[in-house]
Structures are given as structure tokens and as C-alpha cells.
Design a protein around this nucleic acid. Structure first.
Lengths: 208, 208, 208, 208
DNA sequence: TATGAATGAGAGTTCATTCAT
DNA sequence: AATGAATGAACTCTCATTCAT
């Protein structure tokens, strides 16, 4: 390997790493304070540099949000695909998707918070139209799982699956708002209890 | 009776009515576009007047949000108090609180959306500290109902009540984001299905 | 006429007048210091208001330049059209166009300076593509006059008309850079001497 | 001779050559896009290096413009001096100065464009006060030639020599904007036709 | 010689707010 | 009650410049 190549290799890597650091800082602040309300100076402060310096690495505040959300969605869909490709039954698919969701929250917590809070406003911008695409695909995946569950007799037929879908959509990501790596409950444990709640309800079973 | 006096007599009522109109317009826009991102000109446009004219009626953009949220919380707590004062059992209290919540959504939809989306950011402002108070009280009420339900043997003991609480907190208001008066499901019907989901789960009961 | 109508009429007029004042100030500063280098605060200073206040009247710095240049070109072409529609001979058309040019300079001096100095850079912006259109049309008009003059035997045939055209194009507007209403030479006198120079040259005629 | 010493020896020449290359690139870009609007990154791009690297060779963007313009003016004045020292008559001096001007354009085209477009703005900076000096001297030289021509009976007396001077000043350099080495007209041919126009006018001589 | 990350002043623009009318 | 012009602070972004490597 020529020094030149090693140089440019390590440079490219170093650059990517720096970007990742800055994006992590940005995601944290966007999640905490809200994207619209966060100034790029605040992001820079969090990263320990000056406002203008961010523009050496990124085109705009918008592209930071873009990269943060894209990375999250890419990972999430990779995890979802893996589940969907496994050919499991409706119920197991359900469990696995929930598990994948909480794992994604574990890895992209601030991004999920941003996704949850800012999607509605960001999607007015064509640049973020992929958020809409993703939402639509998310809906299709979940509705198909729910409908299959009802057909298979595994899920109750007396509930509107559209309502169940919204219920799941609105609850699955919201955990990112309060979840902490270092909290008392692990991602897996939260997923387990979440599943128990959603599948079996919170009533004492003897009630039936 | 001079026209002037009659004018000023009717003015008090008229003024209140105008304020209500303007607040309704403001709430709609804040809910739709987000409080931080909405300009007071947009609010004024929605009300058919010019930006500066709003300041005849309100001190600031902030006080509009304040009034909108206060009115919502006042009504909500009135409904909650009525339920809590009825001395019902844990399970019936649970049902009734959920019903009251969806009724409140029905009456204050835009306010609830604002509450859901903006509380986190607004509470950094001392003026909105009552939001924190309300949230704390909300938590106490629900935790006490849940704990009582567990003690009475009506609710499962294997779930973290803190988790159930967060689950309810995060889902109960979110319906405001998609709920429509003129949609296919009434507030009562949504409350019924929501209760069924949360209490009994979405699995086919025979599964047990 | 209802008071309402008179009101809105006088309002519209007042607004237009204010815009005109501000545009005059802007044109002066743009001409003096250069468009790119002039800050909108400088324009505002010249108008006696604050930077932000300009945005009540104009969308952007760009639209100020746009309005200034459009107004100039509109007037210039009106004057040119009048000349071209008069059906004069080549030589008289030549004289009249030069006269119209200097009249336009007299009325739009700063705009002409801006046109002269900034066209090249502004035309990279699609918004100002009309400058290119105007330049092309200007070229067509002048070349046709020159070619006709040569055909009619009124203009020398041993000079490249393309060169003459460029010569005229580059000199006719440049007077705006030093011309002053209150200077020793009137617009008409300058036009007369300019014509004499261009038509007859600066040599003593007896020389031939 | 140590390699070090040989290095530094060749460095002096190499450095000068590199500077010349960079200045040529800078002049081209400044001329094309405008000095104020050109970023030093654009200059660097044109030279195939990075923005910061220019500062190894030059103190500032300003000094690049400075060197570019100084070199042009030095050469121009050398050519002018040669003409003035030749002790020719007014008319021959006139011809020779125009010739020298077009030769200078031929050798310093981008610099002349910059000179033409940016002088007005640059002269607000004391560093470029030599531009003002040069302009004043230019004026003196030309006025003296013109006045001598009138006195000698070679130039018409019915035209304001101040106006003729401005006319020449404004037209002589402007050719740099469209002149091309590889165009159909050589510098000498342009000078010839320019002289014909200015001296004899564009009318058919028989007209007199 | 050149790189690349960072600086920091200043640009155009936005917007809640004020106030004379 | 409402208008419309203006304010002024704050924002995103640009760019000449610096400097360790």
C-alpha cells in the first residue's frame, strides 16, 4: 500500500469519523430541544466548535437532519427486512418486528425522537419526501401482518386493524423519548413487557 | 342609552367572542404546523386580519398558546375530577378516565395536539410551569389507579406499572393527531376499542 | 367615492411611492458601490430605516435590483420603439436612437450604471435572463440600423459593422458613470457631441 | 553544493513561476466572475489546489489583485512612455498610444477586464491608491495630446476635449471584455479600425 | 508546498413586537 | 379594532484567513 493511498484512506476515514461525531452531537441537541428551535450555534457548541465550522462538514442544518434520519431509517428497514424475510408466522413476525423496533431505538435513540417529533413538519420539504415513503411502507408492512394475524385466527377480529396499526405506530417509537441505555429496563425487557401489554392486555387473565 | 354606552356594554362580550375566534384559529394553525414554526402572521392570516392586529387582543404569541393550553387543561381536569370524585372501583375509574380523555380530545383537538407536541419545549419557560404540575398530577392519578388495580387483583402484577403508565400517557393523547369529528369512528367508539386493546390485548382470547 | 375606496386608493399610492423612494435610494447605492458589495444595511441606511425594514417592502435584495433594472429597460425600450416606429432613414434613426439613449440615461442614471456594471454577473441568475433577451434585441436593432446605413451608402463600408456595434454598445451607456444632471453639459448637448464624434470623427475635416 | 542549497536556489525561480501560474489563474477568474464575487476557493479550484494553500504564496486575496493590476499598469506605462518619449506629432502620438493600448490588452487581457470593472470599488482602499494616480496621469497624458492636436489644427476645435478624453478612456479598455487572441480580428486590426472610427467617424466621407 | 479543519466577522433574511393612525 | 410601517434581535449561511501537520 503506497503511503499516498494510506494517507487518503486514513483521511477519508478520519473525515467520516468526524462527521459521525458531529452528527451524534447534532442528533442529541435536535432531539432534546427540537429541530426547528435548535440553532446551528447550539449544535456547534455541543460539538465544541464554532457555528461556521459546521459548514465545513455539512451543507446545511437541513442536511444534518437528513443524514441523521436517513441513517436511522436505513438501519431500521434493514432490521425489518431481516424479520420479514425470515418467513415467520404472523404472531412471531409481530414479536420480531417489535423487538427490531426497540433494538433500533436502542441504537438510534435521538434520531427516533427527531423522527417522532419533526416528521410532520419536515415532510413539507421535498427533500424529506422519503419520510413519507417510509411511513407508507411501514403502514403496509404492519397492516399486512395484522390482517394476516386476524385471518389466521391469532388476532381478535372485533378490533379495527387500522386502529391497531395506529396504536402501534404511535406507541412503538415513543419509548425513545424516555428510554435510556443506563435505565433499569433493557431494550429487550421493554420489548417483552410492551408485547405482553399489547398482545394480552393489562387485565388479570382470570378475568376472562 | 347612548350608542357609546351600548357599544361598550356589548364590547365586553364581543371582545371575548372575538378572542375565542382568534384563539380557535391560532390553535388550529399551531396544531397543524407546530407552535415554534408558526408565525404570528400565519395565525393572523387564518383569522383574516393582519399580524399586528393580533396584539390588540393578546400580549404575545406566547399568551395565545397559554390560553389555549390552559383552557384545555382546565376542562380536562374538571372531567377527571368528576370521575375521581365518583368513588368508582379501579377498573371503572380506568374506563371512565379513558372516556373522559377521549371526550376532551373531542372538544379540544387542536389544543391536545399542541400539548402533545410542544409541552417538552414550552416547559423550559417558567410561564408554562403549570404544564409540569399538570403532568405530575396526571402521573399521580394514573399510578394510583393502576396500583389500586393491581392490589385489587384486577390488573396483572407482572407488568411494571411505571411502564403501563407511560404507555397510557403516550397513547391517550396521540389520537388527537389523527382524530376527526367527521371520521368513521366516534370518540366513544374509539375509547371503547382503545380500552379493549389496552385491557384485553389484541390476541384471540382462546389463545390462553 | 366611499371613504373605504379612497383609503385603499391612497394607501396603494402611498405604498407605491414609498417603494419608489426606497428603490431610488437602493439604485443610488448599488450604482455607487456595486451591487454585490453593497449590503442591504447600507441601502437601508441610505433610506433612513433599518435593514430588516426593507423586507416589508421587498422580498429580497435581488428583487430590488430586478425592479430597478426592469423599470429602466421598460422605459428605454419604449423610447426605442417610438423611434423605430417613426419610419425614419438610417441616419436619422441613428441620431434618434442615440438621443433616446441619452434621455434614458438622464432619467435612469443609477439604473444604467448598475446595468453596465452588473449585467454580466446578474445574468447567471435565471431571474435576470431578461437582461440577456434585452441585449440580444439591442444588438439586432443596432445591427439592422448599421447595415441599412451601409446599404444606403450613408455609412462607410470599410468598417466591420459588428465592431461598430460593439463600439456603440460599450460607449452609449458608459456616460451614465460620469453624467450629472447639474453638470455643465445637458443630455442633449452630450448626445450632439457624441453623435458628431461617432459620425464625423475627431479629425479636422479639411484633412481629407 | 548541498541538495539543500540547490533546492533553495531552484526554489526562488520555481516559486516565482508558481506565483505567476497562480496569478494567471486568479486573473482569469476575477475577470470572468468579478473580483468581489469570486471566492478564493474558486481561484484555488482553477489552480488545482485548495483554498488555504494560496496563502502560502500570497498574503491575501487583495494582494493577488494588487499584483495582477500592478503588472498590467507597469507594462502599460512602459509602452506609453516609449511612445511619449519618441517625440512624435500629436496625430502620430495619438495613433501610437491607441496601438500601445491594444497591444497591452493583448498581453494582459484579464487584468484589463479587472481594471475596467473593479477600479472604482478598489480605489476606496488606500492600498490601491496607485490606481487613482495612474488614472490621473492617464488623463493628463491624453488631454495634453488632444489639446496639442487641437492647437496644431489636426483635431476639430468644436468638440469638448474633456468629452473626447472620456470617450477614449471609456472605450479603449472595454475591448478587453470581448477581445480574443483566437478571434477573427488581430489586435492590430482592431486598433486600425478603432482609429478609423474615432478619427474619421463612421459616415461616408463623400457626405461632406 | 499543500492539506484540511477551524475561526469569526459579517452577510441576507425572518419575525415577534410596537405604535401612530 | 384593525392597519401598515418600522424595529431589532436572532438566525442560517458564507468566506477570507489561520495554522498544525
Amino acid at each position: 500500500m503506497s503511503p499516498r493511498r494510506r494517507d487518503s484512506a486514513s483521511t477519508a476515514a478520519a473525515r467520516a469519523e468526524r462527521r459521525a461525531e458531529l452528527l451524534a452531537a447534532a442528533a442529541e441537541v435536535f432531539a432534546l430541544r427540537g429541530y426547528a428551535v435548535t440553532t446551528v450555534r447550539e449544535v456547534a457548541d455541543a460539538a465544541g466548535i464554532l457555528g461556521g465550522s459546521l459548514y465545513y462538514h455539512f451543507d446545511s442544518k437541513e442536511s444534518m437532519a437528513d443524514e441523521i434520519l436517513s441513517a436511522f431509517l436505513t438501519d431500521m428497514w434493514a432490521a425489518y427486512e431481516e424479520v420479514l424475510d425470515a418467513g415467520l408466522g404472523a404472531r412471531e413476525t409481530f414479536r420480531a418486528l417489535i423487538g427490531a423496533s426497540f433494538q433500533t431505538i436502542d441504537h438510534h435513540r435521538p434520531a427516533v425522537v427527531i423522527y417522532q417529533n419533526e416528521s410532520k413538519h419536515l415532510t413539507t420539504n421535498p427533500r424529506f419526501s422519503y419520510l413519507l415513503d417510509s411511513q407508507q411502507r411501514f403502514r403496509e408492512v404492519w397492516l399486512s401482518v395484522l390482517d394476516r394475524g386476524v385471518l389466521d385466527g391469532e388476532l381478535r377480529a372485533d378490533l379495527d386493524t387500522g386502529l391497531i396499526y395506529r396504536f402501534i405506530r404511535d406507541t412503538v417509537w415513543v419509548a425513545a423519548s424516555w428510554y435510556r441505555n443506563d435505565g433499569p429496563l433493557s431494550a429487550d425487557e421493554i420489548a417483552r413487557q410492551y408485547l405482553a401489554m399489547v398482545l394480552e392486555g393489562i387485565l388479570q387473565p382470570k378475568e376472562f
